[in-house]
Structures are given as structure tokens and as C-alpha cells.
Amino acid sequence: MGVEALAESLGQNVLTTTLAKLIGWGRGNSVWPLQFGLACCAIEMIHTATASVDIARFGSEAMRASPRQADMMIVSGRVSQKMAPILRTIYDQMPEPKWVISMGACASTGGVFNNYALLQGVDKIVPVDVYIPGCPPRPEDLLNALMILQERIKAQGITPRQ
């Protein structure tokens, strides 16, 4: 095979891209969520994983029970003052890069419970990437948030949040 022929066949079979794009593409399409149910929203989160909505289409069906294997934490429900330190510990145990979706009004702002017992927004203790309104949000809303997050992850490159 001549050099010209080799160059021609490579040109037809090889894509060139930047490393950042490749990593972003890989990360964005395999966001493993932490299986972390708190309250009402957790039930809608389960709905998102079931057949009718099917989060597996977006590569996020692998709910990990261990924070050390998870990329994304979905704070699904109200966070009480007693739960807050635990939630932060779990977040700290997740390996970088990691993302947080605050699902529902209670996780985002405290929702209808403006009182002593609840953390008025989970963004007081962990950095949140996407907020979902609703009490609880529909499963489609969670999918939408996941898609927004995927776009962001793909744009973030090799070292997100530095």
C-alpha cells in the first residue's frame, strides 16, 4: 500500500477533535446519579427511571448507591437541619467532577415549609448546577434538567469548575 493510499483511507476513517470535546462528550452521556431519595420528589425520581419516561435514553439509568461511584447528586426533596451535615458529607465523598441537581421547590428554596426545621435551599451547603421548580416536578422536568446539565458538562471541557 502506497503512502498516498494510506493517507486517503485514514482521511475517510478518522475524526479529529479536541480532547476537551471528547471528554465532555463521554462525561455528558454517562452521568451516573447518586441514588439519594429524600422525600416526595424521590418518588417522581423513581418514575423517571421507569419504562414510561426512561432516563436510560440519556445514559443515566445507573443509579449508584455509593457516592464514590456517582457523578451527579439529585437532591430530591426537603433537606432538614438534621440531614444537612449528612448530605454535605455524601457530597464530599463523591469524586470530582461532580454536579448537583436540586429537584423540587423544597430542595431549591424550602418550598411551602418556611420554618425552623428545613434548610431554606440546598444551595446553602452544596453548589447547585440546575434547579427544578415544582412540588414535586414531573419526571419530564427532571429529564429536562438532565439535558440542560448534559449540555453544560459537554461545554465544560477537561477540568470543569476550576
Binding site: A39, R78, M83, A117, L118
Partner: peptide, 8 residues
């Protein structure tokens, strides 16, 4: 861990 203060 999920005390919401609903009664209050």
C-alpha cells in the same frame, strides 16, 4: 432526618 416542622 426528614423532620419538616409540618405541625408548626
Amino acid at each position: 432526618y426528614l423532620h419538616t416542622g409540618i405541625e408548626k
